[in-house]
Each structure stands twice: as structure tokens, then as C-alpha cells.
Design a protein around this nucleic acid. Structure first.
Lengths: 111, 111
DNA sequence: TCACATACTACGGTTGACGTTATATGGTGC
DNA sequence: GCACCATATAACGTCAACCGTAGTATGTGA
């Protein structure tokens, strides 16, 4: 699972959102680092729905504009939790290995 | 950066390794979850070298078999550290959002 | 009326990982 | 001597996923 997909699931974890809401939520969650494009978002949404990770919560027609709300499914919540654990483990492994590095400085002291 | 690439950089952080050594190290680091195939490994190694993330440390000819050792470069170490931080942040965000989830259980208690 | 924000759809391109197969050598078993 | 396995790298082709761009549609503000 890649970062955009992970953040889309994260955005949907707290409450159902429509596509545009997901884009805004992901921007906030990632502190502005990740700006989803429509191509990325709707492609991922279709894929995740097909995989059963998310479900259509409801559709609202507002002034001719369709708003489709998605919600995280149980399998999706499980997958997100698993992936978060995996990310944590990988981050910890990398930092541990970097600490063993010969000439390790991390921009401090001796540099 | 995807998981295989991240783990390859992690494997090379502590000490220089040759291709086969990277495969074994990544298997260990990921607790057996990630088993690199030759196609993934050498493709990634070539790409990372081209990007300046890793460098050829030395080449040893052992009984006609070439062993090419790679080492993490300074930019590679920086990128790995940055990515580890990012992974941590994303994992934390996901867990925070999951905690806000209506009907949240995480396999405990009320379930 | 023009620009902008909201909201979704559609299309094409590129990256990167994946699986498989091929190459080469040395050791082990028969 | 030959098959098989482990080590070690290379070279294919394929596919998933992300990315950018453009297009459609409506309401609001200058």
C-alpha cells in the first residue's frame, strides 16, 4: 500500500467523507506534504471500493452536484491498523540501522 | 518511496552488503514479511545508484563470481531518515484517526 | 462576465515492483 | 560424470498505482 492510499483510508477512518473532503483531509493529515490530484483520488477510491476496503456511505445531490460519501469498512480498518503497525516497525528498523552507521552524525555535534 | 526500496536502504545503513546479502538482510529486518526477488532487488539497486542514494563500495571476484558491495551514501542516509520520520508520522495519524472511529473496538472488550 | 471554489469524470504517461528465466560457478549426492 | 542445489547477478516483460491534465457542471464574488 502506498502513501496516498494509506492517507485516504486514514482520512476516512474518523468519519465518512466525499471525494473533495478526502483531498482536504489528506492535505491536513500530511501537514501539506501530500496534495492529492483527482486522478489519484478517484482511481484509489474505485480500487479501494472494489477491494472492499471502503464502502459508499450515501449520495447527496446538492444543486446538481453529486456528493458521494465513502466510509471505511471493517476490513479496511483492519488493513489500515496493520499497515500502521508495519510502518512503525519499518521506521524503527531504519532508525536502529542508521544508528549503527559508521561515521553516524545525524547533523549534530562533530559535524 | 516504496517498502522494498526503503528496506534496501535500511539494510545498507549499518554496513556495505552485496546483492544477495541485501536480500537476506531485508528478510530479517521485515521479520520474514518481505522476500525480495532478484528482479526487484537489482532493479532497485540500479535505480538507487543512479539517484545517488547508494554507491558501489567495492567489487570482489570470488571464484569467478562477482560480488558487488553497495554502501549507503550521505544523501541516501538523509533520505532514509526523512522517510522514517514520515512513516512514523503517518502511522501516528492513522492510529489517532482510528481511535476517533465510531464503534471503535480494536478487538477488545465490548466486541 | 470572468475568475474561483466545489465536485466528479476521463485519458494518457511514467515509475517502480513483480515474476520468470537465463547465466555462471562450486559443492554435494548418486 | 551428471543432476541438483546454493550463491550471485542480469535481462526480460507485465501490471498496479500514482501523476498530470483537461473537461464538465454549478454557485459565489468582483
Amino acid at each position: 500500500m502506498q502513501e496516498p492510499t494509506f492517507l485516504i483510508l486514514t482520512a476516512l477512518a474518523a468519519q465518512p467523507l466525499h471525494g473533495y473532503g478526502v483531498i482536504q483531509s489528506v492535505t491536513t493529515l500530511s501537514a501539506g506534504d501530500v496534495n492529492l490530484r483527482p486522478g489519484t483520488l478517484y482511481g484509489a477510491l474505485d480500487r479501494l471500493a472494489e477491494q472492499g476496503m471502503i464502502e459508499v456511505d450515501r449520495e447527496e445531490a446538492i444543486e446538481g452536484r453529486l456528493r458521494r460519501y465513502y466510509r471505511l469498512s471493517e476490513p479496511g480498518a483492519k488493513a489500515l491498523q496493520d499497515q500502521a503497525t508495519r510502518l512503525r516497525r519499518n521506521a524503527a528498523a531504519a532508525e536502529l540501522q542508521l544508528g549503527k552507521r559508521p561515521g553516524f552524525t545525524l547533523g549534530v555535534a562533530g559535524a
